[in-house]
Amino acid sequence: MKLAVCISHVPDTATKITIGADGKSIDTTGVNYIIGPYDEYAIEAALRLKEKMTGEVVVISLGGDAHKESLRKALAMGADKAVLLKDASPRDSFSVARAVADYLKEFSPDITFFGKQAVDYDNSAVGLMVAEMLGLPSAAVVVKFEVKDGSLLAEREIEGGHEVVEVKLPAVLTMQKGEYEPRYPSLKGIMAAKSKPIEERQPSASSPKVEILSMLKPPPKPAGKIVGTDASAVPELVRLLHEEAKVI
């Protein structure tokens, strides 16, 4: 099976974000970048499928040279090959999806995996846009799946529960935390990754549909309120939580 995994290279979730001088991008000084956490589930899902059915896992990322770090980690985890669609300029979800779809058209994988969302811009858009652009069936927010001949059954998370859907192959899946807890790259895997290729491609260009005007930090939290310091304050606390905060 030909399996593609599209990964993002995003600021570590532990990073303190500061807004850059232009007011519409983040200040990247000292920011540590990682593979998007949901994309790691996608990598793990593809690797497990490959180990079960044989095949090839190709990991793809769009961005500048810095993305090679994440691609290398995916190779160390066990992917066979990496493709960098090399373009460091800012793109919106549409133009990322367009370039990825154009590349995938040529590569034509049986299954293309994405994380359910990148944790930088949180649009949850690229995976499903790619599926639409390629005219492929898709399942989003997948926690578990199983390949049957010519199709796959995907269990997806929905509000309050799970849903099982069947899609014909080739298909696109966007992965959620569930069955596929990502492995650590082993030291052997890391050494082997040194000799695996990272192919560089010029991604197709397209005009963005969305322009970022500004970025804002959330307003600072107002100071807390101390209702009391002993048990006598509990009824008032309960009343406030119920009537004012409306959380209970």
Binding site: E69, R72, Y184, L187, M191, A193
Partner: peptide, 14 residues
């Protein structure tokens, strides 16, 4: 090197 750092990150996470 890139792989030295990846080994460190991996063991750190472990």
């Amino acid at each position: 090197s890139e792989e030295e750092l990846l080994i460190r990150t991996t063991v750190r996470e472990f």
